[in-house]
Amino acid sequence: MLKLDAVAKIYKVGAFGGRTLTAVDDVGFEIRSGEVVSLIGESGSGKSTVGRMVLGLTAVTRGSITYDGADIATLPRKAYYRSVQGVFQDPFSCYNPVFKADRVFRMIKEEYFPRVAAPEWDAKIEESLDDVRLNPAQVLGKYPHQLSGGQLQRLLIARALLLDIKFLVADEITSMLDASTRIDVLNLLADLKSRGLGVLFVTHDLSLGNYVSERTVVMHRGHVVEMGLTDKVFTDPRHPYTAKLLSSVPQLTTKWDDTPAVPLDILDYGAAALVEVEPGHLVRQEQSLRSVN
């Protein structure tokens, strides 16, 4: 459904744009309907930039992103957003603090459903609030600061559901939430796929990515270093970077092993190519890497 093909984002920096900064390079993968793909990476890996490019909030420098076969750069924005929506990291900054929280619904009505009658629209809102397990009486008519992070985040998912979306970009949507509410939002995301939605779940937290997704894409320094079925990537990581990440995740079942962390800081992936090590499991080839310190 959504396909990224050798996507790159290069920023011009410095005076007169003389130097360039490659934030994302050669990122390609596909997300099908009814599938959650987690995009895992640390800060600066370019994972959020990929999410923003899919949402058309940041322009693609090279390569293409296609939705149902059409390049999203050529699609009319408004029509595209009817089926592709996003939810972001910080629920508090997603709401204009001056207005009530349910204004995000009104915006959708004004832009997409101007002719829908009020009672019908209210019923639709109630239905989508029900989908995200929110009680209308508790959330409607409130200011953002009167609601909890979990409620705000679910309101945003409800907002996306008002449009009949086919695809959702969820960019670090649980990282500002407490553990006890985080899992509910994750479950909700996983439920969406049973409705046939495709979800790109962008996160830095491996255990969360592992929990909800069928397939995993690991990014480092703007490059995809490994991708494949979540099972495979997590149990049999082939790229040293993935292995290092996995060994650093604090877990409740095991303590960190005592071997000192292997310093690994690949600065330049240069021309290293993705190689299929087993069907559907791709790893960026290592031999040509220049490893620093």
Partner: peptide, 23 residues
């Protein structure tokens, strides 16, 4: 709280975790 934490290895498809209702 402990049972709401997804661990590497725990999958939604295999074992659905639950949060704590309320605030």
């Amino acid at each position: 709280l402990i049972s709401s934490l997804p661990e590497v290895g725990v999958r939604y498809a295999d074992r659905k975790l639950a949060g704590i209702p309320g605030s």
